[in-house]
Amino acid sequence: MYYELATMTLPFGTAGQAATSVQTFASKPEAQGELLGCWFTDIGVLNQMMVLRGFADLASLQAERERTQKSADPLGCGDILQSLEQHSYWGFPWMKPVRPSSESGVSGPVYEIRTYGIKPGGVQPTIDLWEQYVPAREKLSPCVVAMVALDGPLRFTNIWAYPTLDARSKARADAVAQGIWPPKGGPAHLTTAMTSTIAMPTAVSPLK
């Protein structure tokens, strides 16, 4: 499964308008892929909307990325967006494809979007370690997706869902206390380039 995670910086107070526009853009007859998540940042860099779309193959992802880039109204927000970044990913091959909350039962409304730099040669070991350790970690909170970047610096992004910020803190502390997270040996494959964003779903987000 392939994904695009787009990040828009928006003027203050335009989140509702932008979310509706994103949904319209992603639903047009010529659109490819599927809108999966549409979040607005709450902790981290503010006034940003993060849009996750899923694709069955790389060609579809590239075609939709080109449609967005050539549009005078990208993601329906051309009249308000201050900046737009599009990042392409392929999901860890052992993970189930991301599905809307109505199908998967996975919901927030607190979503943590984390990106870690990966050292050369660290991609496959990271995928293998996560396959080994995520099942136990998911007993505390679900991992929505883990995916390796296809462009830019070598890195991977993982998204986690929590009912509250307190639940996030407890799940992370419990995972460390139980010795089930982070994966043993995993940090050795990562760089110090790490970011974390807490974001909340907009009204149009299939991931609630």
Rank of each mutant, 00 (worst) to 15 (best):
I180M: 10
L35R: 15
W94S: 07
D57I: 01
T157C: 11
A177N: 11
K28H: 09
L61Q: 04
G186R: 02
T9H: 14
P163K: 05
A177L: 10
M1E: 07
V51Q: 13
S205N: 12
E131Y: 00
S60R: 03
Y111A: 09
D128G: 10
Y89P: 02
E138F: 00
D174P: 05
L190C: 01
G152Y: 04
G185I: 06
K28L: 14
A161E: 06
D151T: 13
T197Y: 03
S205D: 09
P163C: 04
C38M: 04
S21T: 09
L46C: 01
A171Q: 04
A15H: 05
G78P: 00
A193M: 01
D79R: 09
M1C: 05
Q62A: 08
P142G: 03
A15L: 00
Q48G: 06
Q124Y: 11
E34Q: 11
M50E: 12
P187W: 08
T7H: 00
E85F: 01
D79T: 08
A173T: 09
R99H: 00
K208P: 15
L52V: 09
V176C: 00
A15Y: 01
G122R: 09
W130H: 15
A19D: 12
L207D: 14
S83L: 07
V45T: 15
L165R: 08
M8H: 04
Q82E: 15
V123M: 13
D166R: 14
R67I: 15
K70P: 00
G108Y: 00
T41L: 01
P135L: 03
I80F: 15
L165M: 12
Y116K: 06
D73F: 03
H87L: 10
G117C: 13
E112T: 07
G121M: 10
W90G: 01
P135V: 06
R172H: 10
P182Q: 04
S196K: 12
G179V: 05
G76S: 07
G108R: 02
I180S: 07
L140Y: 02
K70L: 09
G91H: 01
H189L: 01
E138N: 13
K208Y: 01
A59K: 14
F92S: 13
Q124N: 12
Q17A: 07
L35W: 15
Q132V: 06
A15T: 14
V123N: 15
Q178H: 09
K184N: 00
A63S: 14
T41E: 10
R155Q: 15
L165S: 08
T9W: 00
G76K: 01
T14E: 02
F92V: 11
I80D: 05
R114W: 02
Q82M: 13
S21Y: 08
